[in-house]
Design a protein around this nucleic acid. Structure first.
Length: 496
RNA sequence: GGCCCCAUCGUCUAGAGGCCAAGGACAUCGCCCUCUCACGGCGAAAACCCGGGUUCGAAUCCCGGUGGGGUCACCA
């Protein structure tokens, strides 16, 4: 196998959004391919006509690209094994089924759904496992079968599973996993609609596309013996298998919408950076050394070892994702962040597009000031918005708390005066004005700083007040202070 | 229920028979820095599921139990 080309694939069914569990297995495939100079393939498994949608196909591609997974073969990029969509490869499955029928590895089964149902119910009633073996059809004379087909009877094609022996899955992550063939029934290869089942289509494709390593969710582990049986019957060499564990929610159940965000698009909408999701998911259960955690995709690929992937299911920890997200936000340059922030501010109505465009350097400075305080992109409009616009809306209760104090009411006008007459509007000058007034009145500067912050930003938390005010600009600060001065008149009697 | 997988702090994990009186990260809780909030620094609390073996010696190997998960379709 060392000399063979590494070829891996991510094969989603387009029946909904791309879940984090799915991206993680896609990620592992990608990492493995990149690490070994192999080929990463995306194949759309849309044989379930009922549930597959075009919309999902688009979403899938979008999500994969958003997080930074590019594929070497697959939809849109094509490749030597095109098409990469199962509904367009039907002929291949039919031919494979014919081969299996011809070699006696498979047979026509004419049992009706009702008969099968009855069979299972009977088994259950007798507390036996319902393992269907095709009854009279398993060894029916081919000529007789042909006649039934010509007579228009519906049929499926089933695999003739050996009744004895064992099938061993040599799993890269778990080691050998053995299954007794006696527990496997004669599974369906081709449905009565003349379309393949998942196990059959996936196996035929993996064989035809010369997949060297099947890396997928461990919910497929129990399917693997069936696929191995098919591989053997087809006379094809086996790929290596690696079944990666599921991603669980905090309640240890499979992660789903119930847990809040579960799809890639959810995380994007919640202000998570793609590189952060990538990094977090790649770390989850991948068995990397624990000393460092922030890695670029290339670094992750370089260190990735499929045989190091942990076999136990991982609980998705949103707070860790958030902390990684914060790291990536901090790593962005103020320029990059301002480019992200501008459209968000425009959309939230905090600032007009013209206003933003006129002074991007200022936005850049603002982002530089605030980037350490932003955990997710979606916080931007709220924490940046007050740098734009004029007067503010104040929370009434907080307003009373800030400006009800006698000291503040007494000296705010004086503070306004000093700020208004400052020769230059710089961080240092503002700080000097505030601190000297407080010192003269023999009070701690914080007695002025907090109300000033509230007056100029409308909030009780912000970046450093003086740099914030400098960026806010003199005109806007004075306007807001004057507004507060006026509103203060309406406050009840001062308390000391 | 049958079959299969898994089992170290709350979470993700390091650990591949002695280096472990179990290390790191996130979260939590203190303290420091400080105009608030973050950032940063320092520190604390916190785990080898249980029971048997094997061995001079087990978190590491074996068996059993328990717990969690997956899967049992003409879905994928």
């Amino acid at each position: 196998m060392e000399n063979e080309k590494i070829r891996v694939r991510y094969a989603p069914s387009p029946t909904g959004m791309l879940h984090v569990g799915g991206v993680r297995t896609a990620l592992f495939n990608w990492l493995f391919a990149r690490k070994n100079g192999g080929v990463f393939i995306v194949r759309i498994e849309d044989t379930d006509l009922e549930r597959s949608t075009e919309e999902s196909v688009e979403q899938l591609k979008r999500s994969l690209r958003w997080i930074g997974l590019d594929w070497d073969e697959g939809p849109e990029v094509d490749g030597p094994h095109a098409p990469y969509r199962q509904t367009e490869r039907m002929e291949l499955y039919r031919q494979a089924a014919q081969r299996l029928l011809g070699s006696g590895a498979a047979y026509y089964d004419f049992a009706t759904p009702e008969e099968l149902k009855a069979f299972r119910e009977r088994a259950q009633a007798e507390k036996r496992q319902p393992i269907y073996r095709g009854g009279e059809y398993r060894d029916m004379d081919p000529e007789q079968a042909r006649q039934k087909i010509e007579a228009g009877e519906a049929y499926t094609v089933r695999f003739k599973t050996p009744r004895e022996g064992q099938t061993v899955v040599e799993d890269v992550i778990r080691g050998p996993v053995t299954f007794d063939n006696a527990n496997l029934e004669d599974f369906v290869l081709m449905k009565s609609s003349n379309t393949p089942t998942y196990n059959f289509a996936a196996t035929v494709d993996d064989a035809e596309m010369e997949i060297s390593h099947v890396i997928r969710g461990d919910d497929h582990l129990s399917n693997t013996p069936r696929q191995i049986l098919i591989y053997n019957a087809l006379g094809h060499e086996l790929p290596a298998f690696a079944h990666v564990p599921q991603v669980l929610g905090p309640d240890k159940k499979k992660l789903s919408k119930r847990h809040g965000a579960a799809s890639v698009e959810d995380f994007a909408a919640q202000g998570i950076l793609p590189e952060a999701l990538f990094n977090y998911l790649a770390l989850l259960g991948a068995g990397y050394a624990a000393d460092e955690e922030i890695f670029a995709p290339e670094e992750l690929a370089e260190r990735f070892r499929i045989d190091r992937v942990s076999g136990n299911p991982a609980v998705f920890d949103e707070s860790k994702l958030l902390s990684i997200n914060q790291v990536y936000i901090r790593r962005k340059s103020p320029e990059e962040l301002s480019l992200i922030a501008a459209p968000m501010l425009a959309e939230s109505g905090a600032a007009t597009p013209e206003e933003l465009e006129r002074d991007m350097p200022r936005l850049t400075k603002i982002m530089e000031l605030l980037k350490e305080r932003i955990g997710r992109l979606t916080e931007i409009p709220d924490s940046v918005g007050y740098f734009y616009g004029g007067k503010l809306d104040y929370d009434e209760e907080e307003f009373e708390k800030q400006f009800g104090k006698e000291f503040v009411r007494e000296h705010f006008p004086g503070l306004h005066e000093r700020l208004q007459t400052l020769p230059e509007w710089t961080e240092e000058a503002i700080e000097e004005a505030v601190r000297s007034l407080a010192a003269e009145k023999e009070k701690g500067a914080r007695h002025l700083i907090h109300p000033l912050r509230f007056a100029t930003t409308g909030r009780t938390v912000s970046a450093g007040l003086f740099e914030t005010m400098a960026l806010l600009g003199r005109e806007r600060c004075l306007l807001r202070i004057e507004d507060v001065l006026e509103k203060m008149q309406r406050l009840p009697k001062p308390v000391s």
